[in-house]
């Protein structure tokens, strides 16, 4: 009995430390207690790496007097995390990771919350996207793919993650620009898409460098084109889609938002701290490791950018037939 109660106490202690319970209450200039950064996706993904790298750098460099604690709230293409943070109206102690799904999930009608429920704080970087094939593939360039797709509509299989995700938008943009149709195969995650490409089960995959860079370096996949404006420094030999006659560019942003109506001074403090973070070695290494492009935007600029992109996605998502019909 004694052993048991001791064990259960131990369990609970481990548990509470683990979930980071315990909020300090104190007065003074913001922040007076730890800030919680909600990650809209599971541990181990791109947003998780972004958030945890940032959190670790804030700890190390003391960019704010209080730490930023990360918490994963995955599910529903981000809908669960969005609703959770939106519900913290006026509370500047919550931050939320915002990427493409921050716009597409509300547009698809999965959640009633939207841009109006958040205060844009900062954007940090853009994820680049690339088109890749198995080295044994008959395609040597995007031009050949387009030509083949024109001759054989809906025959070329393109692997990606769920509809509405960045890679599905990339595939859609090519279809639209080149006037072709692919056979889009949905997988549960980037890793499964890569596995299917390596095994020769799909013809093409759209991926971001974070997930496919090592496979590319080892010659296990071949990059045929990048979705950026200019060639990427990490892969200077790979032409852009524009160079190959397909007028498409695409980037996914990596930003942070807070709940709506937070105090102006808190917003300013956060913006300044994040601007400092952009200059740290940790962030520069993060960019280089993941082949991202730095793209600083303060809250106001980021807000305008979100509005603009949201309008663009509204058209895309509708075109892809993803708007929920009531």
């Amino acid at each position: 009995m004694k052993t048991l109660s001791r064990l259960s106490v131990l369990f609970l202690v481990v548990l509470f430390v683990a979930i980071g319970a315990g909020n300090a209450l104190a007065a003074g200039p913001y922040p007076t207690k730890p800030i919680t950064m909600i990650i809209h996706a599971g541990a181990g993904g791109g947003s998780d790496i972004f958030a945890r790298t940032l959190s670790a750098a804030f700890d190390k460099e003391k960019l704010l007097p209080q730490p930023i604690i990360v918490e994963n709230k995955p599910g529903g293409s981000g809908a669960i995390a969005f609703a959770y943070v939106a519900g913290k109206k006026k509370d500047p102690y919550y931050l939320l990771t915002a990427v493409t799904s921050f716009m597409t999930t509300p547009l698809m009608g999965i959640t009633p919350v939207g841009l109006k429920d958040f205060t844009p704080i900062a954007n940090f970087a853009f994820d680049e996207y690339m088109l890749m094939v198995n080295p044994k593939s008959k395609y040597k360039s995007v031009k050949e793919i387009v030509a083949d797709a024109k001759a054989n509509p809906k025959k070329i299989t393109v692997g990606g993650t769920q509809l509405g995700s960045s890679d599905s938008v990339c595939a859609y943009l090519i279809e639209k620009a080149a006037g072709v149709q692919f056979n889009f195969i949905v997988f549960n995650g980037g890793g499964e898409v890569n596995a299917a490409l390596l095994g020769g089960h799909i013809d093409i995959a759209v991926s971001n460098p974070g997930e496919a860079l090592e496979l590319f370096k080892a010659g296990k996949v071949k990059l045929l084109g990048v979705f950026s404006d200019k060639r990427l420094p990490g892969a200077p030999d790979v032409p852009t889609l524009k160079e190959q006659g397909v007028d498409v560019t695409y980037q996914q942003n990596r930003g942070l938002v807070a709940p709506a109506d937070i105090p102006a001074d808190a917003k300013k403090t956060l913006e300044e701290a994040f601007a400092k973070y952009m200059k740290t070695d940790t962030f520069k290494k993060y960019l280089a490791d993941n082949m991202l492009s730095a793209a600083w935007m303060d809250g106001e600029t980021f807000g305008k950018w979100l509005d603009k992109e949201n309008a663009r996605y509204a058209v895309i998502v509708k075109d892809m037939g993803l708007i929920k019909k009531k």
Binding site: G44, E214, L215, K217, A218, K285, D289
Partner: peptide, 14 residues
């Protein structure tokens, strides 16, 4: 895999 990437190590074929 995610944790290793935060460490700057990227597992892959090499």
């Amino acid at each position: 895999l995610g944790a290793l990437m935060i460490h700057g190590l990227r597992p892959g074929p090499m």
